Simulated assay, not measured.
Amino acid sequence: MKRWKKVLLIVVLVLLVAVVGLLVWQRENVGALYTALTTDQDTILKNMEQSKQKLEDSLTDYDITVFAPTKEQNEALLNGTASADEIKTALGLENADAQDAVSSDGASTEEPSQSAVPGESLKPGGQSQTGSTQSQANALVEKCIAELYACQVDLMAQLGSMKQEALSQWNSLDAEQRTTQKLQEIGLNGLMKCYDLEVVTDQEVKTILATYRTKLEAIGADTAVLDSLWKYYSNEKAAQKAYYINKYLN
Rank of each mutant, 00 (worst) to 15 (best):
W230C: 00
A157Y: 08
S51G: 05
I44V: 05
K163V: 01
I245S: 01
Y149V: 01
D63H: 11
A242I: 04
Q152M: 11
V200P: 04
Q240P: 00
E86N: 06
T39K: 08
C144N: 13
L191T: 06
L93Q: 05
Q50N: 05
T214D: 14
D85M: 05
S103V: 03
R3D: 07
D202Y: 12
A210R: 12
S51K: 09
I10Q: 06
L22K: 01
D100A: 11
A137G: 06
A210S: 14
R178L: 01
L197K: 15
E75K: 13
A242Y: 07
L23R: 12
M48I: 00
I219L: 04
K237A: 09
M162R: 09
Q164P: 03
P69Y: 04
M1P: 09
L33K: 06
N47F: 07
Q158S: 14
D63G: 00
D222E: 10
P69A: 05
P69L: 03
S121H: 08
L9G: 04
N246E: 10
L91N: 04
Q73E: 14
N47S: 12
L13K: 02
D97C: 04
G160C: 06
T39H: 05
G131D: 12
A166K: 09
L148W: 02
R3N: 04
A68G: 05
E176S: 14
E236T: 02
K182H: 08
Q134S: 14
Q114F: 02
G220F: 08
L91D: 03
K237H: 15
R178M: 12
T81G: 09
A116Q: 12
T60D: 07
G187C: 00
Q127Y: 14
E120V: 14
D227R: 01
E142S: 14
G126W: 12
E165Q: 15
E28L: 03
T223L: 12
L122C: 04
A238E: 13
Q73R: 02
D174H: 06
Q73H: 02
G160L: 07
L140I: 03
G160F: 05
A175C: 00
E185G: 03
T89G: 15
D227I: 00
M192F: 15
L229G: 05
L216E: 03
M156N: 10
V11L: 15
T180V: 07
E236L: 06
L55T: 01
K215D: 08
R213K: 15
C194Y: 15
W230I: 00
D42Q: 14
Q114N: 13
N29S: 12
D222G: 05
A150C: 04
T109C: 01
A98H: 06
V205T: 03
P69C: 02
T214C: 01
